[in-house]
Simulated scan of single mutants.
Amino acid sequence: MILVRHGRTTANASGTLAGRLPGVMLDERGLEQARKAGERIAPVPLALAVTSPMERCQQTLSGILDGRVGEAVDLPKVVVEDGLSECDYGEWQGEKISALTRRKLWKSVQTQPSAVTFPGGESMAAMQARGVEAVRRHDAAVTAAQGDSAVWLCVSHGDVIKAILADALGMHLDLFQRLHVDPASVSVVRYGEGRPSVLATNTHAGDLSWLAPNPAAKKGRKSSRRRNDDAVVGGGSGPGDGLDKV
C-alpha cells in the first residue's frame, strides 16, 4: 500500500485547520507536489486507487494519475472511501492553529490523543479505527483479487495516515505524534501474513520502481499464502533480493 497525503492547500498555507470544510483546494505548490508524487509512483502498476472524499485528496489523486494518461499502463479503478476522510475536528475546524495551541485540549492532543474527543466532533481513537479498518479491508480485497504482489494507492490526510502508520508499527496512538507526514509525502506499508511491515515513511524523493511486482508473476495470480513477512537477520540485501518472496 502506497500512502500519500494530499498536497499543500490554501488552508495549510494560511495556518488554518481545514477539517471537513468544503472548498479547501490545493494551492499552486500543492498541485506541483501532487505532480511530483505522480512521477515517483508512475513506474509502479497500481491495482487500485482509494481516496478520501475531500476535494484536496481527489485533486491530489488526479495529479498523481494524470501522468499515466497515454502510458502503456492501465489506469486503476478509483474508489472514494469515507473511512479515509479527514478527522472530524468539530468546533476546531476553520480555526487558526495559532489560536488552537492555546486551548487546554491542545496539550492532550499532543500527549494523550487516545483520550481526545474534539468538541462537536469525533475522537482520535475513532478516527484511527475507521482508517485502519478501511485500508486493511481494501488491502485484503486487492490481495484476494490480484495476489500478494499487487500494489495499491491510498490518498488521505495527515492525522489519518499517521494513525494508520502507528497501527502498522505497533505503536500506541498516544505515540503517533512522533510521526511526521508532510503534504504529498509517500509512505509504504506491506500487510503480511503475520504482521505489517513499514517500508517507508514521509518520503519526498527517490525511486519507487522497486515496488513494482516481479514481471514474471502473472497478473491476477494468487499465492497459496501471503508474502513471507519474516525479518531477515542482519537486514538483508534490500529490495529485489527475493528473500521477501520466500
Rank of each mutant, 00 (worst) to 15 (best):
T111N: 13
F118H: 08
H138T: 10
T203Y: 15
L208H: 03
I2D: 01
I64H: 03
A11P: 11
A212L: 07
Q58M: 12
D27C: 02
R5F: 02
G234C: 09
V50G: 09
P22R: 00
A144H: 12
L199W: 12
A129G: 02
V80H: 01
R5I: 14
C57I: 10
G94C: 04
R221H: 14
P22L: 00
G158R: 04
V73E: 11
G220M: 07
V109L: 13
G206M: 02
G170M: 06
A125S: 15
L169C: 13
S185Y: 08
R190C: 10
R221V: 15
A49S: 14
N214T: 13
V132G: 02
S62V: 09
M127R: 09
A72C: 07
Q33T: 04
S98N: 11
V69N: 03
G158H: 06
A34G: 10
E32S: 13
T111P: 12
R103K: 14
T16V: 14
E86N: 03
R68E: 15
A140Q: 14
T16W: 06
L153Q: 02
T60C: 07
D241V: 11
L173K: 12
G238N: 04
A141R: 03
V232Q: 06
V44C: 05
G170W: 13
H6G: 02
M25Q: 02
D182T: 06
S237N: 10
K77N: 01
V44W: 09
Q58E: 03
G240F: 11
P183Y: 03
T203M: 15
R20P: 11
A144D: 09
N12Q: 02
A212C: 11
V78A: 00
S237H: 10
V109S: 03
S237P: 13
R56S: 01
L26H: 01
G170P: 11
V151D: 07
G38V: 15
A11G: 07
D244C: 09
S156N: 04
V142R: 01
L208P: 04
H180R: 06
G38H: 09
L208F: 09
A212Y: 13
V160A: 14
A216M: 06
L243C: 05
T117C: 12
G30V: 05
A168E: 08
R8W: 10
H6Y: 10
K162G: 10
M124V: 08
S123L: 08
G242A: 08
G94T: 11
G70Q: 11
E133D: 08
P76L: 06
F176N: 09
G19S: 06
Q112P: 01
A150K: 04
Q93R: 09
G238S: 04
R102Y: 14
Q59C: 04
K96G: 08
T51G: 10
A134F: 11
G83D: 07
L100A: 11
A49D: 12
A141D: 06
N202Y: 12
D139I: 11
G70Y: 11
L175I: 02
V116Q: 05
E81R: 07
S156D: 07
Q59N: 07
A184N: 12
A134N: 06
G38Y: 12
V142T: 01
S62A: 12
Q33S: 05
C57Q: 05
D230E: 05
